[in-house]
């Protein structure tokens, strides 16, 4: 399979005044057409920034300093602004974490979707764009879609707003949809609905999808492959089934065992002790201060990402360790 999106050796830094903080440090992965990839890790691991960099929507002060992002044969990191604008919301779309703040409160839902349609099809008249908006709202399961076009976002619940966001993102028939924590801000009951919707649309429309999340349950439901990020690096990249059955990196094991589902009822929830380092990374393996399998050698040399069958892993003990997966 040829890659639709290919990110290699991506580096992202925060620059303010004279201080430079590395945020993403040499991340590489590919997404094939029609494939769903999960990008997981704790807050601060750099997963959202990696996703944002694909649309060149990094926040002010945060810059991509190295690496390449190739989408459908085009290098995005050197593409001009107009070329990037034509891609966004068209072939390459994104939905965000908080649907409550991601829609503009001052314009109607219909206006905001129709606007996305017209942005990439100049000359589309208003009526056609509105019809397309109705079609999209229908597709994402909003009842009485035509009547809801005139509603403002405040009249929509969180789940409906995320559906509207998805409708907006899909209106350009993207080849790749990036979903940044699409269910984190929603009620648990709504989360499942939105996930089911995303998984169904991804298959029906045959588009590729990157799901950024810290919820491994989401990845299991929706994704084919998973990339685990820690402290700005990729530590494990594997097919989802392989990863759940037998993670190769201690951090992957920690994440799986920290899922509430993998704890017996009544037992204490398991955690990974400590927190993701920010600013200065520890020497050697960046995970070693929190790792249960740490050896003296782990603190000295930073391990490389190496291939082990279908899996790539960044741990010098990956061959000898037999880590436990999810139940």
């Amino acid at each position: 399979m040829t890659a639709l999106l290919s990110i290699s050796e991506l580096r992202i830094q925060h620059r303010r005044g004279g201080t430079v903080t590395p945020l993403v440090d040499g991340v590489s992965f590919t997404v094939a057409a029609g494939e769903a990839l999960g990008l997981v890790g704790e807050s601060g691991s750099g997963k959202t920034l990696t996703a944002l960099s694909a649309l060149r929507l990094l926040p002010p002060g945060v810059v991509q300093t190295a690496g390449s992002i190739v989408f459908a044969g085009r290098e995005l990191s050197t593409l001009d602004d107009e070329g990037m604008r034509r891609l966004r919301g068209n072939e390459l779309a994104m939905i965000f974490q908080d649907p409550m703040t991601s829609l503009n409160p001052a314009f109607t839902i219909g206006n905001q979707i129709a606007e996305a349609v017209r942005a990439h099809r100049p000359g589309t008249d208003r009526a056609t764009a509105r019809n397309r908006a109705v079609e999209m709202l229908d597709l994402v399961g909003i009842p009485a879609a035509r009547a809801r076009l005139r509603d403002y976002p405040h009249a929509f619940s969180g789940g409906m707003r995320q559906r509207a966001m998805i409708a907006m993102a899909l209106s350009g028939e993207p080849r790749l949809l990036i979903a940044d924590e699409p269910t984190t801000a929603l009620d648990v009951t709504i989360q499942a609905q939105i996930l089911e919707l995303l998984a169904r649309l991804q298959q029906d429309l045959g588009m590729a999808m990157i799901v950024v999340t810290h919820d491994l349950g989401v990845v299991a439901d929706v994704c084919h492959r998973v990339c685990v990020m820690y402290a700005g690096q990729l530590v494990e990249r594997a097919p989802v089934d392989t990863f759940y059955a037998r993670p190769r990196h201690p951090y992957g094991e920690g994440l799986l065992r920290a899922m509430p589902q993998s704890t017996a009822p009544g037992a204490r929830l398991r955690v990974i002790p400590g927190a993701v380092p920010s600013g200065a990374f520890p020497p050697g393996c960046r995970f070693h201060p929190r790792c249960g399998y740490v050896e003296p050698a782990c603190t000295a040399d930073p391990p490389d990402l190496v291939d082990d069958g279908p899996v790539s892993v960044r741990c010098r003990r990956h061959a000898e360790l037999r880590l436990r997966g999810a139940r």
Binding site: L57, F96, N104, P105, A106
Partner: peptide
Amino acid sequence: LDSDYVRTARAKGLPARRVVGKHALKN
């Protein structure tokens, strides 16, 4: 300009003048 909905407007592929002139200014 720092808000989520302005980022959404950019992610939609709207030109900068529309992002500012329509989405940001009214708010």
